[in-house]
């Protein structure tokens, strides 16, 4: 069963998205039941570097501990982490995050590809990557990296996405394990 595969195998679940993905998360987060057995990491393209309100907005939707990542923060199961604006978010082998303010990738910083590839490197098959709505091809290469490493890949069904381009690109480039609407994602994550 999909649920068993996720819960038993993933130490980390990554969610990447761009335009139209905030609404998805506002529906998804309240449906998660504590305790989570994995660390949930959210990487979104954001407009402004000074926009800290997104973490506050998400925090209202969950009883799980949620924080915007600072350099060298420890990665703990049951916690939700949000990539800060204007930095790439990387995963270290010692179970901490590190940040990187190098060039944008796919016109984006944070780039979904960067975090997904870095996590695939560390977690291998114990990783799930979910890609949501967006108008950019970021995330496709990252999902491929997760798949190559033996992890689970999930893409939001393009028909249910506000902007279908990002999930469409991912479906074209990777054969994701699941293509799901929000309810489908909720049941898999539970």
């Amino acid at each position: 069963m999909a649920e068993n595969r996720l819960v038993s195998n993933s130490a980390m679940v990554l969610i990447g998205g761009s335009t139209g993905s905030i609404d998805v998360l506002l529906n998804l987060l309240p449906a998660l039941r504590p305790p989570l057995t994995f660390a949930l990491v959210i990487v979104l393209h954001r407009k402004s570097a000074t926009d800290t309100s997104l973490a506050d907005l998400f925090a209202l939707k969950t009883s799980l501990p949620l924080q915007e990542v600072e350099d060298k923060d420890a990665i703990l199961p049951g916690h939700i982490y949000l990539a800060p604006a204007d930095y790439h978010l990387l995963i270290e082998h010692d179970g901490t995050f590190s940040l990187d303010d190098s060039e944008k990738v796919n016109y984006s910083r944070p780039s979904i590809d960067v975090t997904f590839e870095s996590a695939a490197d560390v977690y291998g098959s114990a990783l799930t990557g979910i890609l949501l709505s967006g108008a950019n091809a970021d995330g496709s290469a990252g999902l491929q990296a997760i798949k190559r490493a033996g992890g689970l890949t999930i893409v939001q069904h393009p028909d249910t996405a506000q902007v279908a381009y990002m999930p469409q690109q991912a479906i074209l480039n990777t054969k994701p394990d699941y293509v799901l609407d929000v309810e489908g994602m909720v049941s898999v994550l539970r």
Binding site: S98, D100, S102
Partner: peptide, 9 residues
């Protein structure tokens, strides 16, 4: 140096 970043570079 932070390993993940240097590896990416």
């Amino acid at each position: 140096y932070a390993r993940a970043s240097i590896k990416r570079r």
